[in-house]
């Protein structure tokens, strides 16, 4: 469980989704999803692979267009924004990809400086260097600044991915399977980092995962997804004190009883 009490403002919704549908051909991935994320809140979306968890956060970031439904992020309806509006919104959203998605041809430092320089054209090099160092220290990887992504471990890549989003000081963080494929110790480090980001930068987050340890460690609210729909939500204890087979299966599989 968390070692701190997050400052969640229940009166301020940063993400508001209603009746969200998305299909790929005859594959109906999302079937009437509804979710609220409040200021400073970490919401974990749990579910098996292929249930549409990643599609949900890609719609929030404007990478995919929904078939129908209402998606409001930071007071703006995502699918109604023009290119400039979407660009402005994306500056406030940090998206951490499953495998880091670091730019192969750039060093760690350049990976971090790239979005900053591109979005603030008149920024001075000294300021960029300083900000890069600040976020690298925040994720505990200041020594990797001159390394190439290929020289980093899986956990380091994910942490640099988080650092790259933090450099733009987002209000909303979207994590896609942050602990997938990592050893338990690195998972714990990533979970601590997600909590640290929430505490230090006062971000609201959606964390997509199928790792219950991660859900328990970082989630203020847990939402369980099955076949494109949310079947249960609440805090960790509320969600897992159930007789629902799917949820019990999840719990048993993760061996954290």
């Amino acid at each position: 469980m968390k070692s701190f009490t997050p400052e969640i403002n229940m009166n301020e919704k940063v993400i508001d989704i209603r009746d969200l549908y998305k299909s790929f051909g005859s594959n109906h991935v999302l079937r009437g999803i509804a979710i609220d994320v409040h200021k400073g809140e970490n919401v974990v979306v749990l579910g098996r692979s292929g249930t549409g968890k990643s599609v949900l956060i890609k719609i929030i970031a404007g990478l995919l267009t929904p078939d129908s439904g209402y998606v409001n992020v930071l007071g703006r309806e995502v699918d109604k924004l023009d290119t400039q509006g979407l660009r402005e919104l994306r500056l406030k959203i940090g998206f951490c990809f499953q495998h880091g998605a670091l730019y192969d041809s750039m060093t760690v430092g350049e990976n971090l400086a790239f979005p900053l320089k591109r979005n603030t054209p008149h920024i001075k090099n000294e300021q960029v260097k300083r900000m890069v160092n600040v976020v690298l220290e925040a994720v505990g990887l200041a020594q990797t600044i001159n390394q190439m992504p290929s020289e980093l471990s899986g956990g380091q890549r994910k942490r640099i991915g988080i650092a790259r989003t933090l450099i733009l000081r987002p209000d909303v963080m979207l994590y896609d399977e942050p602990t997938a494929g990592l050893d338990p110790i690195t998972c714990t480090e990533i979970n601590n980092l997600i909590n640290e980001v929430q505490r230090r930068f006062n971000t609201s987050s959606i964390i997509i995962t199928h790792d219950l340890a991660c859900a328990k460690a970082v989630g203020d609210k847990i939402v369980v997804m099955k076949e494109g729909q949310f079947v249960k939500q609440g805090n960790f204890n509320e969600v897992f004190s159930t007789e629902d087979d799917l949820i019990k299966e999840f719990y048993d599989y993760n061996f954290i009883q």
Partner: peptide, 17 residues
Amino acid sequence: ASMRVTEQIDAMEVSAI
């Protein structure tokens, strides 16, 4: 293609690039 399948192009888009 490698940038596309490793989501680097998506990463640029979500960084407002």
